[in-house]
Design a binder for these strands. Structure first.
Lengths: 184, 184, 184, 184
DNA sequence: TATGAATGAGGATTCATTCAT
DNA sequence: TATGAATGAATCCTCATTCAT
């Protein structure tokens, strides 16, 4: 008995975010998504060609939203180091909000997907422009090989802080800024 | 006609390490393990109650071995900072050798397992004693909350370097030491 | 906003003929038919109660058209044996033109359908009148049981020649006439 | 609750023959086979890598058995024409016994399978040697293009006689011999 | 104790059919 | 009347687990 479902993509998005949080990315099945959304399995396939497309899209959109917020920090006026701190706060906030989804970007199998290359590149560009500002303002110089690792690891560390030192947000963010000031 | 299998656990360990390296943790099946070891599937269940216990045991043993090697570094004579560098080199080496196995510790589901708590604690203790030596030798002081995060993240970062910046071992190790000298 | 679709049945017929030719009878889906015709799936169900009715109707109409052409051969003036040859040429031509559709008559499930009984009967009558002419002209006599089998098998053989000895039309038609002259 | 199933391949063979007879080759599913045999789906996959392998093997074995019986006819002493008649009787008998299975060889999709090439070739060779004997004994000469078609069509026609003129075995076989004597 | 055939729930995916719009 | 999104049973296939041998 077909009915028109409103906001179907949003519904799927929310359900998958929830399910990833609850069971982990690789443990969720199409049936689970169907039952969580209240949408028939077949309907999911009207919107996504297969399971992979569905799940990667959710992770992708989640990160895209986060990156938009991070970009906003960079676009503000202000002292570079101040911005770096704000950036880390926001990064923590984003990953914190999306808990289980965050870590998926670090799993190797998702790297292959073109969509995630875009996410990686965008994230890198945002961080890079921040480093550039710092170089100019503070007369520093960051080697390429070093910079690329630093960027990646701030994401990695933030994900880990969120996942493992739960309910210690204050301490976590303070730690992030502290190591940032030492490393950058 | 039952036969006696010698060194069953060692055989299983070797086979699973090999299989994880070749196919990745989540792609290996009981059948694969059986065929790789030459032991019947049913027999595997005489030694491990289920697949999870088998695989987590292998990961556990693999890390236990690594930790023994790391402990050996600490037990040597030498300047603390020198030891820190050796420790990081060895950590990189261990994770590098066991590639696929190392990263499993990053996956959230393994954290729950009691066995891994032991690994975490042992690792932490090793690192902690290193920090203590440094505090004494260099007159520094590391806050608990800070120290625990630093320790965890060196493991995390090393795993990531091994997995993502493949065949850049020299650059990776140099980076590890560099950030260690800034952070510790 | 409903629109009036002209010549719906013709459109469907053309599309399905095309699709059977391209993908084979059992590989076509209602969606494919909808997309090929530009008519919505739901609309197809206003004209045919289910998929089977739709497809069998198409096969039925295709054969009906063929039979009309074959009848035309019989209605011409001319020597009976000459007509027999023309009949076989035309039969080959018809099946050749409708390739995938022709063979469906060979599949047992379509035999059950009442529509195909009509096709069988009409075909039989056409062939029968040809045999009658030959009996009269050449002083032969064909037993009923024999005649009915002969008729059926010329269709069968023609379908097989078209499907299996592709691009050997000349040889195929020559063979048809040759065995006809021996058998009839 | 695993038990040892005896004659599993024979059981599967029988069930599939039955199911093809009842529902047709392309209508049978793995579930149907499982439920008809009383064997779990998974078990079927211990014996055949996939559905296609299972079903084609059944058809293949069925024909292989038939061909053995046909070869036996050829190997006997006797007048060639007498043997031709015996051959046709046996061909009718074989196809009659295996009803639904017979026709599968004529469906185009099975032609691709290597196993069926072997069947086709063997059948052709048997028939060919019969024709050779006839050529020698009766001073006839059969063109290659003609012979190949004749061979194929005797199988086709026999299948059709069995399927459509049910319970008219006497008439059917008489017809077969009659057209054989005219065509060969 | 060791074996591995047997199990069957569960995986992703398809598609004829329905019905609110 | 025409639409096409929604449905869900059914498809093939996998694999951790069991247990008769």
């Amino acid at each position: 008995m077909p009915k028109i479902i409103e906001n179907i993509e949003q519904k799927i998005f929310n359900a998958v975010v929830l399910l990833i949080r609850k069971h982990g990315y690789s443990a969720i099945s199409m049936r689970m998504i169907a039952s969580e959304t209240g949408i028939a399995v077949g309907t999911l396939y009207n919107y996504y060609s297969d399971k992979e497309e569905l799940t990667t899209t959710v992770v992708y959109l989640s990160w895209k939203e986060s990156l938009k917020n991070l970009q906003r920090i960079i676009d503000q006026e202000g002292a570079p180091r101040e911005k770096l701190h704000l950036f880390l706060e926001q990064l923590y906030e984003e990953i914190s909000q999306r808990r289980g989804i965050g870590s998926e970007l670090m799993k190797h199998d998702l790297y292959k997907d073109e969509k995630f290359l875009e996410i990686q590149v965008t994230y890198t560009n945002i961080f890079r422009s921040l480093l550039k500002e710092l170089e100019k303002a503070e007369g520093k110089l960051f080697e390429e090989a070093h910079a690329i690792r630093i960027q990646k690891h701030f994401m990695l560390i933030t994900i880990n802080l969120v996942n493992e030192f739960i309910e210690e947000d204050g301490e976590n963010v303070r730690y992030l800024k502290e190591i940032a000031d030492k490393l950058i």
